[in-house]
């Protein structure tokens, strides 16, 4: 485990906790895309099926369990507990445009044509684009709460840190996974515009708002 991977995991975990706490403390999921959260629940479920087949470490297992459990808790809060505060009118991204192509691609480009491996590949592809409904919602409403911006930054920087982890692993362990690397690059590129706004606005104490 190198420092980039560890910091990536910590930032991913922070993002998940920031979102859970934001919704729970404010008793509201305003400004949060339920569709993106649903996609993340699908991502974790399909990727971590190896919890039942493969043990890597106590760290690995506990993180997976926390990610899966918190993604379901978030979906439950948005679609059940705090349903009245969910802004479905602005959450209009068509998720089938993400699920269908990534599902097809995972059948075509994978490391091994087995059910578990195809599901893992699907989860990698789907994760790379799962934030789009959330980014679409922010661009549609033209603004995001500061706490939501922190959530998005932590979530975006996690995969960026993983890119450095993969460079490290290629250099020192001769390990590389082209599927994860390409998807990770796509995922990071999707956040670039948001990173720019976060650094130029949110870090200077302003609310993230887009020009009309």
């Amino acid at each position: 485990m190198n420092i980039f991977r560890f910091l990536g995991d910590i930032s991913h975990l922070s993002a998940i906790i920031i979102l859970l706490l934001k919704i729970w403390k404010s008793r509201s999921c305003a400004g949060i895309s339920g569709k993106s959260q649903l996609l993340f629940a699908i991502v974790f479920t399909t990727r971590y099926l190896d919890l039942f087949t493969n043990f890597i470490s106590f760290y690995n297992t506990s993180m997976k369990v926390v990610y899966v459990a918190s993604s379901y808790a978030t979906v439950w809060m948005i679609y059940s507990k705090f349903k009245a505060t969910y802004d479905g009118n602005h959450d209009t991204f068509r998720v089938e445009f993400l699920i269908v192509p990534t599902a097809i691609l995972s059948f075509l480009v994978n490391h091994d044509f087995t059910p578990l491996e195809i599901l893992w590949t699907f989860s990698i592809y789907l994760e790379s684009v799962a934030i789009l409904p959330q980014l679409f919602m922010v661009s549609k409403t033209g603004e995001a709460e500061t706490i939501t911006s922190h959530y998005l930054f932590a979530l975006g920087i996690y995969r960026t840190l993983y890119l450095f982890n993969w460079i490290w692993r290629y250099q020192f362990e001769e390990f590389f996974d082209l599927i994860a690397i390409v998807a990770g690059l796509v995922q990071t590129v999707l956040y670039c515009d948001f990173f720019y706004l976060y650094i130029t606005k949110v870090l200077k104490g302003k609310k993230l708002s887009l020009p009309a």
């Binding site: 991977r5 995991d9 991913h12 190896d50 493969n54 890597i56 690995n60 993180m63 997976k64 990610y67 490391h111 091994d112 491996e117 893992w120 993983y162 982890n165 001769e174 390990f175 590389f176 996974d177 082209l178 599927i179 994860a180």
Partner: peptide, 10 residues
């Protein structure tokens, strides 16, 4: 070699 099958990351 491509060793992507070792899924030891999160």
């Amino acid at each position: 070699s491509v060793n992507g099958l070792k899924h030891d990351e999160l």
